[in-house]
Design a protein around this nucleic acid. Structure first.
Lengths: 342, 342
DNA sequence: TTGAAAGCGCTAACAC
DNA sequence: GTGTTAGCGCTTTCAA
């Protein structure tokens, strides 16, 4: 492998000058620059990032903490989509993505250790909630953090506008005449869960509808099993006071609701409307296709990258406690229709 | 950040000794070792990988080339699933995953340059076919390659047993009485496409069925649009000689076939059976649920990791031209039934 | 069994 | 505008 000294020799200048050329220093004669570049190209010189990192303390590496309850890994339709977009944005600015893992050592702050070991410049938190303490330790150690989907103290967060999205879909149901709307709440330990539930309550208030305990039920975990249990509980609770529509806190719940109701002989949407939140690919292929809220995963990833880059440039004047909410969209499909007049 | 010198000072030994301890050298007094370890823990020492890489020329980094026609990125159900498993396996051996990208420079062998820049130890080729020349250049430059889904000269490949899988599903149809089976072939530029088509022809031969040009059609690209066109062509070609079953070269095609046929008034599976290949999550949620071939993505990723690790250990005595085929499974669902006696 | 010292490839003062 | 040189944190002879 050609080194900077080879380029120096080939071009007739010193290694310092070659370095300056490659780092776009101002004070280099343009002819010199040209000669150096030609020499470098000739011998196929590629700078060695390890050497660079050793002296500059900058690795051009962004660590990603990507673990989630569902254990779907990269294929996770939401986190995976966001990461894909974040990655693409960061690459444009010369950063590479590396996965941080917790099996790195047997100590407590394993992610932190991995950050140090790899000397990452920043960290994207794209996972189920981390202990607040662990996130804080990473940020405090000087690694610029950006979080997606979760909020941590002093770490900027990017997330879908769950309030707006909930409002969109519930208002849509309202215009269809639905006033008795049940909700299966996502785990309240997640920010999304809390915000969507909050949005639901705001909706009720805005339309002078009363909150009915028997129409809501929380899903404990982000798993199908947990969703099934929650749905069963809901259906049992409201048997004698059946809703005209159900708001599933996220699409997967909606799919299960559809199947459950169909199996019990209900017709969707005629007997009852069902809506979700996510707009997974599958929302277009289930029967009936699902009316849901579209999350702009691409935008979320891009915004997270934008904030990360700003932070990496030292432009950290803004409030790190900021939550940036990305607008959602409504996807109207076949799981909803006018409410029957009971 | 604590350095090896800090540990040396804290423990009372030299940096050389500390290094030996951390690299598990034989000739270190066990008491010395213990003292060094205690000192290291006390001051929170983490070795600096950049410095290590600079001298050892080993980065503990595996580059992944992960680009595919569908532009689904990480969320790609097949490649994403394989990568997830590969990553998990490699992490257990201390390797981290980094994405190689082609926007790295404007030169021709951009992936190669990125490999050099990051000093990766190995490369996983998990993408749509790369130019043979480019793959060869990477391998030749000393980066240990393993390919998934595609075959390159002198690079070990891991892929589903497409022959076996095709045989499984076609034999199943045969046992249901199907003898006139159409096929929508995946792009023949892909290894999977070639093997599945080959498997189809072998099946026909084994059962003394004649190959009928009008019952097969190739899909040009791995896109929904291309699939739709192919399906249209097939349906037009065999109108007067309708098959009793259709073998879709991969699940997504099968989903589109189902929708197309249903829209045209056919009943599946009563009028015609439909089968796929992949077993995507959606296969369980479309109507009717899809009978298909299950690809063991986890095993593929693990096997790729196993081969990679072997190569990294210098144990490269085996034939690098090897193709390892991972057995598939049959998933029988509701899109198939006995063939009607015409 | 341990340590001194050179060197991996690069950057950044500082001197010229 | 360009070059000299020290040093980033580590490994690895080689000597003791």
């Amino acid at each position: 492998m050609a080194t900077i000294y080879d380029v120096a020799q080939e071009s007739g200048f010193s290694s310092a000058t070659v370095s300056k050329v490659f780092n776009h220093y101002a004070g280099v004669n343009s002819l010199t620059k040209e000669k150096v570049l030609i020499a470098a190209k000739k011998i196929g010189y590629i700078p060695n990032i390890s050497a660079q990192t050793l002296v500059t303390n900058k690795s051009w590496l962004i660590g990603v903490i990507f673990k989630e309850d569902l254990h779907q890994g990269l294929v996770h339709p939401h986190f995976g989509g966001i990461l894909e977009s974040f990655k693409a944005s960061m690459e444009k600015s010369g950063y590479d993505i590396i996965f941080l893992n917790k099996n790195f050592s047997d100590l407590e702050l394993r992610y932190l250790e991995h950050c140090r070991y790899r000397n990452v410049d920043g960290v994207l938190l794209a996972s189920s909630p981390l202990p607040e303490k662990e996130a804080a330790a990473i940020e405090k150690a000087g690694f610029k953090c950006v979080s997606v989907e979760n909020d941590y103290r002093n770490i900027p967060t990017v997330i879908s506008d769950n309030y707006g999205g909930t409002k969109q879909i519930l208002n849509y149901l309202y215009t269809l005449g639905h006033k008795k709307i049940a909700m299966v709440i996502p785990p309240l330990k997640s920010l999304a869960g809390r915000e969507r539930f909050e949005g639901y309550k705001i909706f009720l208030k805005n339309h002078n509808l009363v909150f009915d305990e028997n129409l809501v039920v929380e899903c404990d975990e982000y798993t199908d099993e947990s969703a099934k249990i929650a749905i069963e509980r809901l259906l049992n609770k409201c048997l004698d006071n059946f809703p005209t529509a159900i708001f599933a806190g996220y699409d997967k719940i909606a799919f299960i609701i559809e199947r459950t109701l169909l199996a019990r002989g209900y017709f969707i949407p005629n007997d009852i409307s069902v809506v979700g939140f996510d707009d997974l690919e599958m929302a277009r292929s289930v029967t009936p296709t699902l009316t849901t809220v579209y999350q702009k995963r691409k935008e979320i990833g891009e915004e997270a990258a934008r904030i990360m880059l700003k932070r990496l440039e030292g432009n950290d004047s803004f409030d790190t406690n900021t939550i940036t909410r990305i607008p959602t969209g409504l996807r109207i499909r076949n799981s909803t229709c006018r409410a029957r007049n009971n």
